[in-house]
């Protein structure tokens, strides 16, 4: 399944790397439910969010600057940061 990371730039603590925002990739696996770090970081009672491993190609992330276009980056992204692509 192909998904895209929200291109959002809120202040405060988030675990979505800047270089992956707005980028699309394939779901590698759903790891399960984990505490939402955006609440956990402020000691608020955290809601659970699915944590999903996404596989991005270097060409998707870095465009023409990619070192080797078909190499990949895999990262864990919380489901509330993902939308269908």
């Amino acid at each position: 399944m192909k998904v895209r990371v929200h291109n959002n730039w809120p202040p405060g603590h988030i675990r979505t790397p800047a270089y992956l925002r707005g980028k699309a990739g394939e779901v590698e696996r759903d790891i399960g439910l984990f505490n939402n770090p955006e609440q956990n970081a402020y000691r608020l009672p955290p809601q659970k969010s699915h944590l999903v491993r996404i596989r991005f190609t270097m060409s998707e992330v870095w465009g023409d600057a990619a070192e080797t276009p078909d190499d990949v980056i895999e990262a864990e992204i919380y489901a509330h940061w993902l939308e269908p692509a």
């Binding site: 675990r15 979505t16 790397p17 790891i31 984990f34 770090p37 944590l51 491993r53 190499d71 990949v72 980056i73 895999e74 990262a75 864990e76 992204i77 919380y78």
Partner: peptide, 9 residues
């Protein structure tokens, strides 16, 4: 394959 440990794993 670069694995970025972004969260809980």
């Amino acid at each position: 394959r670069v694995h970025d440990s972004t969260a809980d794993m």
